[in-house]
Design a binder for these strands. Structure first.
Length: 644
RNA sequence: GCCGAUGUAGCUCAGCUGGCCAGAGCAGCUGAUUUGUAAUCAGCUGGUCGGGGGUUCGAAUCCCUCCAUCGGCUCCA
């Protein structure tokens, strides 16, 4: 007999060789129907794999991340089986689960799969799923595995096998399909009840553009039809919130082929929104002791040679601008930090001067590859809410913590309540990607880890995600429909101060090197606004909304009264417009609702005679009639409460 | 940059098995209406069908090429 400990702490006895599925059955039939896999002593196993020693087990269902990935991993095998039936001779690459579903990279030998083929693949998958075929796990000697795929002619699997050690190789077989796979898998294909192929794309074998391009099929599956329906509804919702669509509808920004791809044009309403955000942060920064600075849009090549950016990115930048007579080369500014280093150097610094905090809403230009551009989230010209703090080593942690406070203040004001902090460290296996000494890297990484701990942030650590000059702390926010976005970033840098030979005089009258902190709470205004639009579905917080009220006269007879109301509201810094069009009130309301203006003021004969306004709130409806002053105070206090 | 898809009026889209002057709704303009909480009515304007080349008696429709957009890959200071 063996002792099985469950998550609630209870211990049950079972015969050796019992499976997680049997354990589930002993608890309840319903649970057994939903168990996809099990975590055995922390390792995810097949639910059908015999357990032969005492163990702590967690039964996994579709509600667990590991349960989902097991389901989707098994679904990838099912899709491969369907494809092998429908497209004989297909060679298979890899087929992993991903955040939402799974994909399989396949080589169709010149055949093309398009969206029209999805239906028949889905149908075949469902047909195979209904057979309820068991996923059999088999441990295989390496030579047999190689022989199997040689016979099948699958060079990708042979390539994968090369990297695996003998004695460590497992095959999984379901129905007529056998795949090289570490597992684990769901018990049988019958668990898969709903299937949807999402899209098809090209992907290089092993992600290397020198290799052959394979066809990547993305799909998702569920154990219930309803889950699939819900998922598709969520995708629809995401489409409705797409900032590119809303940006056009709300007249916030535009792109023009003539101006150039990836170069956003801010329309008046978008510019107003952007300006509000800038003022908001500017105010908070000045309170926190930041000093605004301004630097030009281009910089001499030597500046970027010193910073190391030229070596790292020079080849992939926009071509340099050359002066006609001197032949000097200038680059469009790709980041602000080198300029700020030179500002630091413009006067000698004492330890008493530190920290100094230079802030700039600096517009930068980067040559992003054509295929990379995407709405406002990936552009070629954008404005960073950048600042560089130069401090003594003993001040790093305090400064870093203060920056964290500022970032969280910004998130709160903009209704981002769900976030985690990602600590991005150097890839210890590939140090050549980075500049600077091991000692400096260690100091910087420690500073971030300690600050995050002190601020009690929920963190995840990612190796290899650091910037080339230093580690960083990135804030990943979850939006209103659960999608994750990377926004603010804070980076500790011991390297640029060295490259620029930045100094301060210490109390010992010796020269010392300051530490630099790069930070941007928004990241870039463009990206931030894109995320904000999608987060609030275009319904901006009142204080940010390009128009806060629109005044809707019942007929043209009341346009003058409407204009008078607007003038009064302007005294309270309330932004608004009068809809003077010759339209019926229903039409005006509809159009204003669609423009997502927070408040509508309906004015007609009654209001004019009583000196009032009828207030209608966007998305909610009629709130009744108010004195003009009363309304102005109401929304003024609403704005104050939202911003604090 | 690479793979795949798409590109018709300011916007959303129909037409695309080649064949009468390329259509609709919204927006815009003009006029009527002067309106009470999500679309008043009528008329009009507007497109060298992404650009260029080709096949054909004839191309929005078929082919080639370039450009842009979308979904991915690689990249992201």
């Amino acid at each position: 007999m063996i002792n099985i400990t469950l998550p609630d702490g209870s211990v049950r006895q079972y015969e050796s060789g019992t499976t997680a599925l049997q354990i589930a059955q002993s608890i309840s039939e319903g649970l057994a129907r939903n168990v996809l896999a099990a975590k055995v002593n922390g390792e995810v196993w097949d639910a059908t794999r015999p357990i032969t020693a005492d163990a702590y087990i967690v039964l996994l269902t579709i509600n667990d991340a590991e349960g989902k990935s097991t389901l989707w991993h098994s679904s990838a095998h099912l899709m491969a089986e369907a494809i092998e039936v429908l497209y004989p001779g297909t060679k298979f690459g890899i087929g992993p689960p991903i955040e939402n579903g799974f994909y399989y990279d396949i080589d169709l030998g010149g055949k093309i799969i398009s969206n029209e083929d999805f239906k028949k693949i889905e149908d075949k998958m469902l047909e195979l799923a209904r057979q309820g075929n068991t996923y059999f796990r088999k441990e295989i000697p390496k030579k047999d595995a190689v022989a199997y795929f040689k016979e099948k002619g699958d060079e990708y699997k042979l390539d994968l096998l090369e990297g695996l050690e003998d004695g460590n190789i497992t095959f999984y077989e379901q129905g007529n399909f056998t795949d090289l796979c570490r597992g684990p898998h769901i018990p049988n294909t019958g668990f898969i009840k709903a299937v949807k192929l999402m899209n098809v794309a090209g992907a290089y074998w092993r992600g290397d553009e020198k290799n052959k391009m394979l066809t990547r099929l993305y799909a998702i599956t569920f154990t219930k039809q309803k889950d699939l329906t819900d998922y598709l509804t969520l995708l629809e919702e995401a489409k409705k919130r797409d900032h590119r669509k809303l940006g056009k509808e709300l007249e916030l920004f535009a792109f023009s082929e003539k101006v150039g791809m990836g170069l956003p044009l801010w329309l008046p309403k978008g510019a107003a929104l952007r300006e509000r955000l800038v003022q908001f942060l500017q105010k908070a920064q000045i309170k926190s002791g930041y000093l605004p600075v301004v630097t030009p849009h281009i910089g001499n090549k030597n500046l970027y040679i010193t910073s190391g950016h030229y070596e790292k990115y020079g080849a992939d930048s926009f071509q340099p601008i050359r002066t006609p007579h001197e032949g000097e080369e200038f680059f469009l500014k790709p980041m602000n930090c080198p300029h700020h280093c030179e500002i630091y150097k413009s006067s000698p610094k004492s330890y008493k001067d530190l920290p100094v905090r230079y802030a700039e809403f600096g517009t930068v230009y980067r040559y992003e590859q054509a295929g990379e551009l995407h709405g406002l989230t990936r552009v070629r010209g954008f404005t960073q809410d950048d600042a560089h703090l130069f401090c003594r080593p003993d001040q790093v942690k305090e400064e870093f913590c203060k920056v964290i406070d500022l970032v969280l203040y910004v998130f709160k004001a903009l209704n981002f309540h769900d976030y985690t902090a990602q600590i991005s460290l150097r890839d210890p296996g590939n140090k050549s990607k980075y500049i600077g000494s091991d000692e400096n890297w260690h100091l910087a990484e420690q500073a971030i880890i300690e600050s995050a701990k002190e601020k009690e942030l929920t963190t995840v650590v990612e190796l290899g995600e650091a910037a080339f000059y230093g580690p960083k702390l990135d804030f990943m926010v979850k939006d209103a429909i659960g999608r994750k976005w990377q926004l603010g970033t804070i980076q500790v840098d011991y390297n640029l101060p060295e490259r620029f030979e930045l100094e301060y005089t210490g109390s010992d009258n010796q020269k010392h090197r300051p530490v630099m902190i790069h930070r941007a709470p928004f990241g870039s205004l463009e990206r931030f606004i894109a995320v904000l639009i999608e987060h609030c579905a275009g319904k901006f917080p009142l204080w940010l909304s390009p128009e806060q009220v629109t005044i809707l006269p019942i007929s043209e007879k009341y346009n003058n009264y409407a204009k008078k109301v607007l003038e009064l509201l302007k005294n309270y810094d309330i932004r608004g417009l009068v809809d003077e069009r010759n339209e019926k009130i229903g039409k005006k309301i509809r159009d204003t609702e669609l423009q997502k203006v927070p408040y509508m003021l309906v004015v007609g004969e009654k209001e004019e005679s009583e000196n009032k306004v009828s207030v209608r709130k966007q998305g909610e409806g009629d709130l009744g009639s108010f004195d003009i002053e009363q309304f102005a105070q109401m929304i003024t206090s609403e704005i104050e409460s939202l911003k604090s």
